[in-house]
C-alpha cells in the first residue's frame, strides 16, 4: 500500500507536512505547555482567522495575512497585558472572538465561492502545496536554530522570569520573539489540522511525553516522535475511510495518550505489587 501511495505527489507532500508539523509543534508546544500558555495559543489561533478572511477578500494567499494577523495579536496580547491594567485572559478572550468575527465578516463579503475555506477550519493535509512545505521547512529550521543556540536562556526564562531578569537577560525581547514564533507555528500548522484542532497538536504530544520524562529537552524530542506517529496513523486512517486528516490525526494522538497513560498506570501498580512481595 505504501509504495502505491508514494506515487502520488500529494501523498509525499502530506507526509512531509506531517514530519514538519511534528517538528515545529514539538518544539513550540513544549514551550507553550510548560509556560501554561495554552489558552493564549488558542486565542492566537482563532484571532488569525481574521487574517484568513482578509486574505480571501483582497485576493492574496490567506497564509500571509493570517501570519501577520497572528503575530500582531500575539505581540498585542503580550504588550497589553504587561503594560496596562487589563487582565491577560480578558485580552485573549477579546482578541479570540474579534479575530473570528472579522474573519466571518470578510469571508461573507468576498464575492462568489471561497475556495479551501473548509481546509482552514478543519485542516487538510492532503491539499498542502509545495509552497506550504517550503514555508514549513523554513519555520522548522528557524525554530531548531533558535532553540539550539538559546536553549539555556529559553529554559531559564520559562522557569523563572524574574530571576532571569536579575541576571541581566533581555527577558522582554525573548518573550516577544518567542511569542512571534508561537504565532507563526500556529498559522503554518493551521493548514494541516485546521483552526479548531491546531491547539491539540501543540499539547497532546507534550502531555504524552510528560508521562515519561520531566526534562524540557526530552519533552521536545519525545513530542516530535509522538507527533510523527500520530500524523502517520492519522494520514492512513484519513485515506482509508475518507475523512478530514485533521480529525483523524487528533483522534490518533488521543488514542496514543490513552494507551500511554494506561501503560503507566499498570506499570505503577505492577511495581507496587513487586515491592510488597519483596517486603514479605
Amino acid at each position: 500500500m505504501i509504495a502505491e501511495l508514494l506515487q502520488y505527489k500529494f501523498i509525499t507532500n502530506s507526509l512531509l507536512a506531517g514530519i514538519l508539523a511534528s517538528v515545529s509543534c514539538g518544539i513550540i508546544g513544549t514551550y507553550i505547555v510548560t509556560r501554561r500558555m495554552v489558552f493564549l495559543s488558542g486565542g492566537i489561533t482563532h484571532a488569525s482567522f481574521g487574517g484568513i478572511g482578509i486574505g480571501y477578500f483582497f485576493g492574496f494567499n490567506p497564509i500571509f495575512s493570517a501570519a501577520i494577523f497572528g503575530i500582531l495579536s500575539a505581540l498585542g496580547i503580550e504588550f497589553v497585558s504587561k503594560k496596562t491594567e487589563i487582565r491577560e485572559d480578558s485580552v485573549i478572550g477579546i482578541l479570540w472572538s474579534f479575530g473570528m468575527a472579522l474573519g466571518i465578516m470578510f469571508v461573507f463579503l468576498t464575492p462568489g465561492y471561497v475556495p479551501n475555506l473548509m481546509s482552514y477550519l478543519f485542516g487538510s493535509i492532503l491539499t498542502v502545496s509545495s509552497f506550504d512545505i517550503w514555508l514549513m521547512v523554513c519555520l522548522s529550521l528557524v525554530l531548531i536554530i533558535f532553540f539550539v543556540l538559546f536553549y539555556r536562556i529559553i529554559l531559564f526564562i520559562s522557569y523563572d522570569q524574574e530571576y532571569a531578569k536579575t541576571h541581566n537577560i533581555s527577558v522582554g525581547l525573548f518573550n516577544y520573539l518567542l511569542m512571534a514564533l508561537v504565532a507563526l507555528t500556529i498559522v503554518l500548522n493551521i493548514k494541516i489540522v485546521g483552526i479548531i484542532l491546531v491547539i491539540s497538536l501543540l499539547t497532546i504530544p507534550q502531555s504524552i511525553a510528560n508521562l515519561f520524562t520531566k526534562d524540557f529537552k526530552n519533552i521536545i524530542l519525545i513530542s516530535i516522535v509522538i507527533g510523527l506517529i500520530g500524523a502517520f496513523m492519522g494520514l492512513i486512517i484519513s485515506y482509508k475511510i475518507n475523512i478530514p486528516s485533521g480529525a483523524s490525526i487528533i483522534f490518533s494522538l488521543v488514542m496514543i495518550f490513552i494507551v500511554a497513560k494506561s501503560i503507566q498506570v499498570i506499570k505503577r501498580k505492577f511495581n507496587l505489587k513487586n515491592r510488597n512481595f519483596n517486603l514479605k
Partner: peptide, 10 residues
Amino acid sequence: SGLIYGSGMI
C-alpha cells in the same frame, strides 16, 4: 542557571 549572565548564546 545561576551561572548564566546576560543574553549570550549558551
